[in-house]
Design a binder for these strands. Structure first.
Lengths: 340, 340
DNA sequence: CTGTTAGCGCTTTCAG
DNA sequence: CTGAAAGCGCTAACAG
């Protein structure tokens, strides 16, 4: 008789108590909750009244067990320390909250291991679907979900095949935009400071920059790959560059650029006088920085929102849903850091 | 015969299939999962082997239904657009991820209604506990959880009674620190720019500032209450102040301060030359801004981490757990925006 | 339109 | 140390 384990939760109000108080059966209460149109208006009103009085809250786990999935989605972000990603998360959360879904937030911090651990956790939680900014192109952790029939939408990462939705910004073009701009401003010796090239964002931005140089027929790209894409890492990168300053520095995100900027100014290197500097993402803080930062703008909030909508569409209309690969175009925002 | 509804999830590997393949019973598999020490080493190894082979992932909903709670916690944040809060969220996520818990992220955006809706959703999800930065002192939405025996820890908000844990920073002292500093630098006509005073953070920071003025015996505090604590709101506030510029502006957070700063500089008002400016939170971007911002530092990541630990302690050791109200002291960080 | 009933997958006594 | 069986709260099929 497993009754003693109830702990402090003895007085849980279930669908049964509601049924009892309303003088109907549990099935009817369930109908009021899930298919109200099938219940007589009068009965429904009475049940709803009792629900309110008793402060009944549906047990999501039970429903989830029955349905095979719950009212939550997973959100795997690459870097929760970057405003670009937290803005994306905000876009997702706003939309999901409106639709009465819970968002389980996960940060991989760029580590494949952590990504996989979190994916397994999400599968356990029976999430309805997952939004993911993957660490790299290794599809193992996604496979874990696909096997179990959990829809996934790629965020800020293009789907390599057409078997799923994705919402991205064209990073190759972004990189091209950045490098072209630097070349136009007269830079020839350019340094690219970015994170691991196994992460698509870095690889693409670099590739775009290289293409710009090739097309222009001049200019060279030195590379500096850092572990983390933080302003601290930017500091360190800049320190190494002091020995042989380039004409311009292209950072794969604004956090890095802000770190680079800080160290350069502190060392008395004039920006943009001596070195041009361009970032990526155009986070809110880029324009407010010591030397307002030229950057490549992306719309993170919108990316999050649209990805969330695509995911819900796939969940709610698995029949009619068609996978879409949406790609936004980035925009060059010129500010003082490249205005000689 | 409710069998046809399986959809794409026909081949779900349950504890039963594992049991079958391993030649044991479901109960034993469950024991391997939850109390491995009660299973013979050899049996355990065999079961674990099968689990791996079959790619079995435990159904969290079922476990949750049985236990009365799941392996997730709720995180209610006041403002997901503010790096202070997202850093706090990162602290929480890092710790919870380590402990194999899922974090359901909710943003109230300062709206009581949204807070309550989210709380109900969290209760439905059978979260193990909730970390909350409440919109105001209205305890209704908390009551919803307490009734159901869901532990809550207040984050960046002191518990008014000793019936729960809380982790805060002393905002009265913070406000005092800020105003004292401005007075010391010679300001007399000070403006406080902040969000609604129903939100404790704003009320306390203002109260601290008033106390500082009172103690000093000189200085006046004009007030400007804005709807949202964003840099855009800071812009607008500053615009209104142009007509009658004060000696100094104390913003209730750095986002506001950055907005104020932007508008002032754009209008040719020298900072700190004409107006002293101080923010609050000391977000990473405060020191990198056009005029590095004097601010009041708080340790958001640590707050999140500690709150998460307190919550888990309460969940895992309900017997021995003692509620703690932890309060950190803020720190004045002087930078150029107040260095005449 | 409403009641009855059979599980969803897992955990946990209780027997063996 | 392992197996059998009951039941967590809810939903959906079916009968009335």
């Amino acid at each position: 008789m497993p009754r003693s384990e109830a702990g402090s939760r003895d007085r849980t109000v279930g669908i049964k108590q509601v049924a009892l108080h309303a003088g109907v059966s549990a099935g009817t209460v369930s109908n009021v909750l899930n298919r109200p149109e099938r219940v007589a208006a009068e009965t429904r009103a009475r049940v709803e009244q009792v629900i309110k009085e008793l402060g009944f809250v549906r047990n999501g786990s039970a429903a989830s067990l029955r349905f095979g999935h719950g009212r939550t989605i997973g959100l795997m972000m690459l870097d929760l320390g970057n405003p670009f990603f937290t803005e994306m998360a905000r876009g997702v959360e706003d939309l999901m909250s409106e639709r009465e879904y819970g968002v389980i937030l996960c940060g991989s911090a760029g580590q494949e291991l952590r990504e996989e651990r979190n994916m397994r956790m999400l599968a356990e939680q029976q999430v309805r679907g997952v939004l993911v900014t993957p660490v790299n192109d290794n599809r193992d952790s996604l496979a874990l979900l696909r096997e179990r029939g959990i829809p996934t939408v790629m965020l800020d990462h293009a789907a390599t095949r057409a078997d799923q939705c994705s919402v991205t910004v064209d990073d190759v073009t972004g990189g091209h935009l950045a490098a072209s701009h630097l070349l136009e401003r007269g830079a020839r010796d350019i340094v690219f400071v970015g994170g691991p090239l196994t992460t698509r964002q870095n690889a693409d931005r670099r590739a775009g920059a290289l293409r710009a140089l090739r097309e222009a027929g001049h200019g060279t790209l030195r590379e500096m790959i850092v572990e983390e894409m933080t302003s601290r890492a930017g500091d360190e990168a800049a320190e190494h560059l002091l020995a042989e300053l380039p004409d311009a520095i292209f950072c794969a995100n604004d956090l890095l650029a802000m770190g680079v900027l800080r160290l350069l100014l502190q060392q008395g290197v004039r920006v943009p006088g001596r070195v041009l500097l361009i970032g990526y993402d155009d986070i809110e803080y880029a324009r407010a920085s010591a030397i307002p930062l030229t950057s490549i703008r992306q719309p993170p909030y919108k990316l999050g929102q649209i990805a969330a909508e695509l995911l819900l569409d796939e969940c709610d209309h698995p029949g009619s849903h068609v996978h879409q690969q949406i790609m936004f175009q980035p925009e060059l925002i010129v500010r003082e850091s490249t205005s000689r």
